[in-house]
Design a protein around this nucleic acid. Structure first.
Lengths: 154, 154
DNA sequence: ACTGAAACACACTTGTG
DNA sequence: CACAAGTGTGTTTCAGT
């Protein structure tokens, strides 16, 4: 599962354009199309590349509101319990356990402020959750495709 | 730029598998391959779909550490100024202006704790930035592909 | 072990109805 | 939007380094 420089360049190409043809990638990294395919197959088998996805503008689909919610839980709440409490809410697009006062940080997307309020109320109704602290996103300054992934290390 | 149900189903398919063939999508939504292609072309032209990207496991590429940093700025710092201050740091994968005390929330990825510390020091050296408050991610509970995008509204 | 080249099958793309 | 033709790409096989 060790990656060489060619692998990293191929991944970088696929982060920029997930639908690039193997021949096109090969031109940029100096390999033939079959060689690129074999490496991509290997990277997928090793779960370095876990999939491919369209990058979508949420606002264009009617999701105009987003927020980050610090979630505070009762004393002995495990990460699994937190997962159970938040993953069933479709508005939750990401969730992390974090250091600091809060138990978790939850990234939520909603269609509008009213929808956000509903989702928040639903979250607060979870038995494990004792309090929440919401920061509404005013504007997205940066959102690299590598938000869900990563590019080549320095 | 109004989307019908077919468009939303096509987008949903491409969020799950960004390399799905048009014929495969067509089978699932009840359209021929050319019809799907024309809609995808239109969705891209309208910037509903802004691109395609591989979904990568950051840990597999050596990025094992991530954090969310609340950034506090001097009184009259515009979103553009904040953008200028954070976007040049390659560790920053996302940044938002938010409501609340902090000026911005910055999502950072680093290779390890030492690297994170370096990035943090570099950030704090920005003239606009007066203080930071860092929450290190202990574990990622949820990270839907729609983190950078969105699925179909309820 | 991994590569490049050729062959085949499949997907994309365009035009037409 | 479906259909059908032509083009290009994905995929496999094989031989070479």
């Amino acid at each position: 599962m060790r990656l060489d420089d060619l692998d990293r360049r191929i991944v970088a190409q696929l982060l920029e354009n997930g639908r690039a043809s193997y021949a096109q990638i090969g031109d940029r990294v100096g390999l033939s199309a079959p060689a690129v395919k074999r490496r991509v197959d290997r990277l997928r088998a090793e779960r370095v590349i876990t999939g491919f996805a369209a990058v979508v503008d949420p606002a264009a689909l009617g999701w105009t509101t987003e927020a980050f919610i610090e979630v505070f839980c009762t004393g002995a709440t495990s990460p699994e319990d937190i997962y159970d409490s938040v993953h069933k809410h479709p508005e939750v697009v990401a969730a992390y356990t974090i250091s600091g006062d809060a138990s978790a940080l939850v990234h939520v997307r909603a269609q509008d402020i009213q929808h956000l309020e509903q989702a928040l109320e639903r979250l607060r109704r979870e038995p494990n959750i004792t309090a929440t602290k919401t920061a509404i996103v005013l504007s997205r300054l940066i959102g690299r495709p590598t938000d869900t992934g990563a590019t080549t290390p320095a």
